[in-house]
Design a protein around this nucleic acid. Structure first.
Lengths: 101, 101
DNA sequence: AAACAATATACCTTAATTGGAATATTCTCA
DNA sequence: TGAGAATATTCCAATTAAGGTATATTGTTT
């Protein structure tokens, strides 16, 4: 996640990433490999540098995924709200019959 | 993630979650606790059942986060595109002077 | 080719996560 | 109150991920 946040501002080499995150170069390489293998990052080789940057696609997919949840949760809230309205009516009736409100 | 996907369709008790995901009840409880502690789920106690459901907020935050990336990546693409146009012009000039194209 | 720079890999150690079985807790119902 | 149901907690083993150091690889420069 730190790498993803860092690359938000633009592409960087492995060494720059390691330096800014204060991790060692092999750690940076390992995490970058995993992120690239999973399609989060893309790499271009330039001389003996490897420049990594974010890929757009996973973020688009994630947004689609998140939106699908928000849609469903919104719908469910409507149902719950209706239900709660019903409950209030029932509660009032009960209260009338109770000694304490 | 399996629990989150499962709860997409509505709230469920611990036992139902364990059953549908084919995990044991203690595992379900542990994962549910972590998800609830981190604000992903909310729980309501009903007799001796605990009913878990998704909370909307983290999904909204996630969408905001994702969108901020898409916005930035979109802007960056424009810049990169301009840059690439410049590079093409430079490459053509180089090619004219090279023995091989 | 030799020295150097940047990065990737391999191997090992340590930390964190996950899963299992047993048990404690809380609630219901007779 | 006692039995049973549903869930949480504890303790332990196993798996997985992360971090370190050394070294291999690739490219550059002289």
């Amino acid at each position: 996640m730190a790498i993803v946040e860092l690359l938000r501002d633009g592409e960087l080499t492995v060494g720059e990433i390691a330096g800014r995150l204060e991790i060692r170069q092999p750690q940076a390489s390992k995490h970058l490999k995993i992120l690239a293998d999973n399609g989060i990052l893309e790499m271009k080789a330039e001389a003996n540098r490897r420049i990594y940057k974010l890929r757009a696609e996973p973020f688009q997919s994630l947004e689609t995924w998140v939106k699908s949840f928000e849609k469903i949760m919104g719908e469910r809230y409507d149902k719950l709200d209706e239900y709660l309205q019903e409950m209030k009516k029932v509660e009032k009736k009960k209260t009338k019959n109770n000694k304490r409100g």
